[in-house]
Design a binder for these strands. Sequence first.
DNA 1: TCTATTTGTGAGTAATTGCCCGTGAGCGAG
DNA 2: CTCGCTCACGGGCAATTACTCACAAATAGA
Lengths: 317, 317
Amino acid sequence: MARRAEANNKLDDAARAGWLYYVAGRTQDEIATTMGISRQSAQRLVSLAMAERLIKVRLDHPIAACLELGQKLREKYDLRHVDVVPSDPGSSSTTVGIAEAGAAEIERWLKSAEPLIVAIGTGRTLKAAIDQLPAMDCPQHRIVSLTGNIGLDGSAAYYNVIFSMADAVKARHFPMPLPVLVSSPEERELLHNQILVKSALQLGAEANVAFVGVGELGENAPLCEDGFLARDEMLKLMDAGAAGEICGWMFDHDGNLLDGSINERVASVPLPSRDTAAVIGMAKGERKQAALLAALKGRIINGLITDESTASFLLKK
Amino acid sequence: MARRAEANNKLDDAARAGWLYYVAGRTQDEIATTMGISRQSAQRLVSLAMAERLIKVRLDHPIAACLELGQKLREKYDLRHVDVVPSDPGSSSTTVGIAEAGAAEIERWLKSAEPLIVAIGTGRTLKAAIDQLPAMDCPQHRIVSLTGNIGLDGSAAYYNVIFSMADAVKARHFPMPLPVLVSSPEERELLHNQILVKSALQLGAEANVAFVGVGELGENAPLCEDGFLARDEMLKLMDAGAAGEICGWMFDHDGNLLDGSINERVASVPLPSRDTAAVIGMAKGERKQAALLAALKGRIINGLITDESTASFLLKK
DNA sequence: TCTATTTGTGAGTAATTGCCCGTGAGCGAG
DNA sequence: CTCGCTCACGGGCAATTACTCACAAATAGA
């Protein structure tokens, strides 16, 4: 037993130390003593537990200001669900806060005993939220990806959102083995006849809830960063009035899907109907404000998870 | 009303400060600056958020359940030490898991630079634990056997626990050259006057920590299997309300040592005082549940190493 | 209005934590 | 076997946090 130290054991120790520290409220010194290690090692274990996301912290209090903003947003844009988290003025992160809140909302849905079809987009925000999900056991639900999760090079998964999620919550999952954008409407037609893709399309139409990120446009937009869209195409789109995209679907400043050829090349599952499903957008930050506003105006989403300052902006418009 | 609003504001502030601290990861100084208050006030808000349980911390790791069970057991039975290891539903072993955990705990004590007297029982569980001990060098400690380790035939050692242990950790050791049960109180008196036995009795009384197995009763109980107790005697004991034994000492379902003649024939060292020593019981499995429960009720042990499912049982009672 | 009591604040200080760095064990290549 | 590399460990120290205390403001009661 002297050398039973394996990676697994290390995480076990980290979990134990983290529990003692955060849940039981012991000091690192006490933990070190009870675990028979030095304080420094205890400290390392505690921070490992944090780094490995074994410890999840959440705020369980409706902050009045956030609640109020949420209430007003709900009324103004006729939303089914709104969650406003505090802003952290000093942070430039685009996910801190809404990731936790998003995870909490996803968890709330997944706890349902009723079998649900949960649709999920992709992007950095959603990935961050998924990473906050606790381990669950949800064989009754099905998770479907709304967006192709194949990179342009045909190999790498474009943000491993649906797999991470299915892994965490143990549900059947239906990825989209496609890129976000294909070269022509005909190619899309062809690809959409694949059996896996057909299942995804079918499930997407029946989804009970969808969680999606909101993509801004611009030369540094995710679609450009990840190589799906050339810079000049992007500029052309913006000239044509594009304001943002959700799962690749481009819309203008009033939230109407663009007519031009671009949306005919989007291989994603059509967004579930806002009459039968909750379509919850998750986004914060100045760069996403225009896109978010447009999506709300056009009722492309009927649920919103954002932060205080973004909420204020959306109310002023 | 005014007062109510103030309280709400306070909790709001606490929530906000707690969020900035725990979720956004800012320091209290930064929080103080952004909220326009002194660092001390920020600290107060953060700790208020904790005290009011606005901040919920969750450990997302299989070991979390064990720690929680351990915590509850510690409170319920007023224990000095609890270690709950994950259950392996697929295994029928009565030692897997607790052997390793027991060894780890023994090792922890042996690492002490202070000279300690470590008392040790016997049985399959302890043997398995001892086998997990790493080689150590502990000349400062003394190990004493609480139970006779001579078989009925006078030859074979009844589970070679203390010798294996002393061998592994290189400490002075004091075996009990006796059977577990002798034929009469008089014989016990006689044997207890042997010099080796007297040392063991003396050391047992001064022990700092004792590790003991918990024996269940029944026709297949260890005491019967090893021939120390005839089946009919066992049945008679059970009729008289016996629930289990530790080092041969029989106790009833409330954990009180039995009055009858049986305990007058037990040649073992009396268990160390639970006021001055840690007496740590190691056991798991359905067959041992009743005995374990009784031992805990009667505070025959003040420490416990067991597995999840046994821990759950003990909590329900 | 005055006073006793509670409540909140900041200073100072003790305790705790985070981090850098030197050390030494383990290990693979030569 | 030796060298060099990696990495975990623990010591030490600076940063951060928790606690105590004294005092001020607010509040309630006479």
